[in-house]
Design a binder for these strands. Structure first.
Lengths: 192, 192
DNA sequence: GGAAAAACGGAGGACACACTCCACTGCCGC
DNA sequence: GCGGCAGTGGAGTGTGTCCTCCGTTTTTCC
């Protein structure tokens, strides 16, 4: 990683200049990421600091508010997701879209943090949403143009639907997948 | 209302015998219901007591734990829902089912409490789930038998899907409705 | 009407978590 | 190497919520 702000998304927090500080910064981000994923956004910040092997003071210096920390984690995940959109570029329209959605599901699904905070609207959140849409929307549009996805649905509709579905509890991962499939069938045209 | 336990569902808490106490019990339940609906299950119990016009002590006497209070509220809502199933009994199969789902959505949708705690499994929660399924499942089965709903989906699948979808945030109620429609199309057969 | 029993309510102790502050530590540039 | 200063960490303070306890009030029953 280079040491400038890696993208407009994460402009909120600055990665520090000194080597040890940078190390701590990264450790915190990683710890927060798993903590948010496994226990939700409410995780005590002290726990995160401890599991990063760092004092609480250090956490606060890097991320003055819980929101700043959350934003930083979130920005990272969104970025990964945007990259994924490029990987599917040369699949056929519907496959490209649904593969990207799979990616979306596995990034977002296990980590409930994102759906938890979905309605927040910080500046950073708007940026993230925009970036994500720029990545995913073309894929959906292509599926629509190919006559594979219904035209009365917007990309936003689909994303919210998916987000909702994967955020609930299921008996098994298998059930989650099945249910997702049903919902996608409702988006796809010329099916069944 | 009579003064015995109104159903097996709410066996957890006892409605008190004395008139004033019973009044407070009901006020608390009502206050909790709106509070949970509007601010989620995390609402401070003191707020609920205050908005019921009752001391915190009274709340605790009636509902020794937050869970007990939540269970009581939840039980009430589930009961209403079960009744709704009877009202649609003589509509055509798919209409009956989707009308009941509408009911389900308007009971559950505005109040995010239920979906929040969906994965909890207290004894009471199991009962509620069972009651709800007894009410709704026949409607779904009928739609399946009439060839209107796909056979590879279970009632449980549908319910979880719906719950997930309505629990997320939307730009407008109109969007929520639209998205729900898409998802239901994925469940329905012989469509589009 | 009065006594016993039931219920009330809110002050206050306990706790969990957010966030600050500052004496100490160890990088980095010279 | 070494001095200055960015960075550290955790003890300590503040806040908000849970929950208990008990003197006071209300109801019920005779």
């Amino acid at each position: 990683m280079d040491d400038r702000t890696p993208s407009a998304l994460s402009a909120v927090v600055r990665r520090p200049h000194r080597a040890d500080a940078r190390r701590n910064f990264d450790k915190l981000l990683a710890a927060a990421r798993t903590a948010f994923a496994e226990q939700g956004t409410g995780t005590p910040l002290e726990d995160i600091a401890r599991s990063a092997g760092v004092g609480i003071g250090t956490l606060y210096r890097n991320f003055p508010t819980r929101q700043a920390l959350f934003d930083a984690v979130y920005a990272g995940e969104v970025e990964e997701l945007c990259h994924a959109a490029q990987d599917v570029a040369d699949l056929p329209p519907w496959e490209a879209f649904s593969t990207w959605l799979d990616r979306f599901v596995s990034y977002v699904g296990t980590k409930r943090a994102i759906s938890e905070e979905l309605n927040r609207d910080s500046a950073m959140f708007r940026d993230a949403r925009k970036a994500m849409y720029e990545a995913g929307e073309p894929l959906f549009a292509r599926a629509q143009e190919a006559g594979e996805a219904r035209r009365d649905a917007s990309f936003d509709d689909v994303l919210r639907m998916i987000t909702g579905i994967i955020a609930t509890g299921y008996v098994s991962d298998e059930q989650r997948g099945r249910v997702l499939g049903f919902a996608l069938d409702g988006i796809r045209t010329g099916k069944n």
